[in-house]
Amino acid sequence: MSVYDAGLLSDIGILLLGALSVYIILATGQLSLGNAGFMGIGAYLTSWLTVVAGLPITAALIVAALVSGAIGVAVGFPALRLKGIYLAMATLGFGEMVRSFFQNFSAMGGSEGFHGMHHVSTGYIWTWAAIVLVLIMLIEASPIWLEIRAVRDDETAAGLVGLNPTEIKVGAFGCGAAVAAIAGGLFAHHHVYIEPGNFSFERSIDFVLAVILGGSTVAPGALAGAVILVVLPEYLRFLADWRFAAFGALLIGMLLVRRQGLLDRALLRFAWPRSRA
């Protein structure tokens, strides 16, 4: 495998984790436009833990995921009183605040960025991505997922049948924050240099795009989306400077033709008739 391919594969793995972080939250019917903020928290915290505190990378990632998850729950509790677009706007604000915070956080380099991390292998990134993906697919096959879907379909009705929508929504938000932090930690140790600009609004949008293009109703959709988002620009090189316009058109086209994204339940059932997907 060439260095170029390995780089692409690593990018796919990191984007997959980021997309999954959005997917978990979207499964409860909430849209987060601020997951790059959690990614940034994860990236900076992991880097600090490995470079300054000297922790091994795996331990650092776990700590970062836990801390970011806790922040996600803390932010989620008040924020999840907001619904739909209002939540999307609040998370957008949160993401920009985190970016702005690291811009001023001179202990970690401020706007100059932070470096000194050791490079991690593509295999290591994919181990994490695979573990998280499988975990989410296991949850999808469990009764918890039915509760999550109930909350997404109708929150009031879910509450009436004895579920706790707040708990489920905040829990999903925390999990999403933790996964985004892992993506951030791996991003930092893949590129071995981070700056606040890495975790801007555009990054959050990338995550959302991957989920929407790949399929927003099944977890493997995030994988399909991540592959599309990383590989397609390589094939669209002949479009040169117009790549992003092609991407925007693709997004609109996908929404017009197939709102649920590339993969959905029906397609998975068609591909693997006996699976319960």
Binding site: L31, G84, I85, A88, I205, V208, I212, D241, W242, R243, F244, A245, F247, G248, A249, L251, I252, L255, L256, R259
Partner: peptide, 30 residues
Amino acid sequence: GYQPFRAAPVVTPMLSTLGFSIILQNVATN
């Protein structure tokens, strides 16, 4: 970006307008 999605959940037209915003920024850059 809006008419076809009038009946869809609020998130969908937001994403399609996002698609336009990506296109417009790219066009302006070029």
